[in-house]
């Protein structure tokens, strides 16, 4: 079961929900992926010990000047103008390249090879609670988060993030993978939620919360993934989020009230279920409702 926790609006409580949901389940069979590679923070609540680290990025073209006939086919097929043939020179602009490989495939002289342009790292390790954790961290100054998120997700699927402390030949079998998505509705968010069995949208009952929730619901519908809503800081703002959820047939799966003691605990790096242990049951209920919705959707 892959559950993405997303929001549209930033600061609604995605990481609060993602980490406490993970801690309420069978932790040894649960993994959390922090996909907010521009500002990862889930590690603050899970305290992992990283045991694997890998540089990731995109493959950018490297041209063999001896073989290149300056035909210009590479520049013609590049949608991003990342490779140019000018006069007797061929230029590569790594910051424009998306790593699609079209230039390499289309070169009639096989003059292009590919080399890794590092955009960030992915790292993984166990946490004291048993939850396994992996995250991506983008290099400062890089503009593209999507390739890092893509590698992070692939790493998990291909077993790169399997705990070293487990037996080498033991086939790992995560029961639940929770993806903590970045805020917003742009490409990094789409990449994070793509392939999930369910998307939990965390919002707050304010005009800002509602505005960005609407946008995110559109994105998730477009991707055709079952979706439900968690209302955080319940009790502030107005009733418009509830009204929207009722009209749009979106189940409200959980409510977390505005509570100063929760805010203070989060600020100290404590997960919600450590601040208020009774929430473990609420998160288990949330998980059961998610399973029901996913099963229903599969029928």
């Amino acid at each position: 079961m892959r559950i993405a926790v997303a929001s549209g609006k930033g600061g609604t409580g995605k990481t609060t929900v993602a980490t406490s949901l993970a801690l309420s389940l069978d932790t040894t069979r649960t993994m959390v992926l922090d996909c907010d590679v521009e500002a990862p923070n889930a590690h603050l609540f899970l305290n992992p010990t990283f045991e694997r680290r890998e540089e990731v990025g995109i493959l950018i073209p490297q041209v063999d000047g001896g073989r290149c006939s300056l035909c210009g086919r590479c520049a013609e097929v590049c949608q991003f103008h990342a490779i140019a043939v000018i006069g007797q020179n061929i230029l590569v602009f790594p910051e424009l390249c998306h790593g699609c490989g079209s230039c390499t495939l289309n070169c009639p002289e096989q003059a292009i090879s590919e080399q890794l342009d590092v955009l960030g790292i992915i790292e993984a390790g166990p946490t004291p609670t048993g939850v396994y954790f992996a995250r991506g961290v983008m290099k400062v100054g890089e503009p593209m988060a999507v390739p890092i998120i893509r590698e992070l997700k692939r790493w998990d699927i291909e077993g790169g993030a399997t705990s070293l402390s487990r037996q080498q030949d033991e086939t790992y079998d995560w029961e639940t993978i929770i993806l903590d998505a970045p805020p917003g509705t742009s490409c990094p968010v789409v990449e994070s939620v793509h392939g999930a069995d369910f998307v939990a949208l965390v919002t707050e009952p304010t005009p800002f919360g509602l505005h960005d929730l609407r946008l995110m619901v559109e994105v998730v519908h477009e991707l055709d993934i079952p979706v439900g809503v968690v209302i955080n800081r319940d009790g502030i703002g107005d009733a418009e989020v509830d009204k929207f959820c009722a009209e749009a047939d979106l189940p409200v799966l959980m409510r977390i009230p505005l509570d100063r003691s929760i805010g203070a605990g989060i600020a100290q790096g404590k997960p919600l279920v450590a601040i208020r242990p009774e929430y473990t049951d609420h998160f288990r209920d949330l998980y059961r409702r998610i399973l029901d919705i996913v099963q229903e959707a599969e029928l």
């Binding site: 520049a75 991003f80 103008h81 140019a84 000018i86 602009f93």
Partner: peptide, 17 residues
């Protein structure tokens, strides 16, 4: 390159050369 999503300068340079 007028309405290009990115790399307009590179595209325009190739065009005029």
């Amino acid at each position: 390159a007028c309405n290009s999503h990115g790399g307009a300068g590179v595209q325009a340079a190739q065009f005029i050369t």
